[in-house]
Amino acid sequence: MLKDVDTGEALIVARPQLERFPSIDVIDLIEHLAHLWCSPGGRTSAAQGLTESLDNGQPLFVLHSLNWVHVMWIVAVGMRTRRYPVDDLIRRLRLQHQPADMDHALVEGATERIKIGLLGEMRGDPKAHAIFDREATLHQKVTRAILQVSLELMNQTQEIMRDALGFRLENCAMSVARNTTSLYCSLPPFHFTDEPG
């Protein structure tokens, strides 16, 4: 159970299934690179690091970690802003701008696969995991499209939180993955507990 002390909102979130990651430190690395990609001036080096990780023989580890990080960001946005149920926030995901180097069908296909992956990570749903894993590795072009679209969507999520509430999501996913008590140190925190409510 993840609880937002500021709003009183609470949500059951599945813990990361460690068999889907080579180590918990991979989530830390991917979240760091995702933050860097969303930062002015950091996109080139972050893209290089993520692409190298993707091409290192274990692309699903990278994509699983991106999904886990992104869903934790979306959960934080949903709980702090009380805008929509988190499932709806995921289903509403859509790129605001079409990447110049990708056609519309590829972007739409990648977006739909990402939504399946995000919902799977949030719920710990083996069926959704299996669908995402199969679809994400159909072809290298698809895998790379999912990486690029994921990062664009994560940047939009960061912008929502920054514009609406004036702060960035720092080490959000890692705090939940490591089961620490607080996701934020400079704000009313989110607490993670095993208690049902």
Results as ranks from 00 to 15, higher is better:
P16K: 00
L18G: 07
L18E: 13
E19Q: 10
R20I: 00
R20E: 10
F21S: 01
I24C: 00
I24F: 01
D25F: 10
I27Y: 04
I27E: 03
I30L: 04
I30C: 02
H32E: 15
L33Y: 13
A34M: 11
H35S: 09
H35V: 07
G41E: 10
G41M: 10
R43E: 13
R43C: 01
L50A: 00
T51Y: 09
E52P: 00
Q58E: 14
P59N: 00
P59C: 00
P59T: 01
L60Y: 09
F61Q: 06
L63P: 02
H64M: 03
H64Y: 11
S65M: 05
S65W: 02
V69N: 02
V69P: 03
H70E: 12
V71Q: 05
M72P: 00
W73V: 01
I74C: 01
I74G: 00
I74A: 02
V75S: 02
V75N: 04
A76Y: 05
A76F: 05
A76L: 09
R80V: 04
T81L: 13
T81P: 06
R82Y: 07
R83T: 15
P85F: 06
D87A: 08
L89R: 05
L89P: 04
I90G: 04
I90F: 05
I90C: 06
R91Y: 10
R92W: 15
R92M: 15
L93M: 13
R94T: 15
Q96K: 12
H97R: 13
A100P: 10
D101I: 01
M102Q: 12
H104G: 03
A105W: 12
L106T: 13
L106H: 06
V107W: 10
V107P: 14
G109F: 14
G109D: 15
A110S: 13
T111R: 08
T111Y: 06
R113H: 14
G117E: 06
G117Q: 08
L119Y: 00
G120Y: 13
G120H: 11
M122T: 08
M122G: 09
R123N: 13
R123W: 11
G124K: 03
K127C: 07
K127M: 14
A128Q: 14
A130R: 15
I131T: 14
D133Q: 14
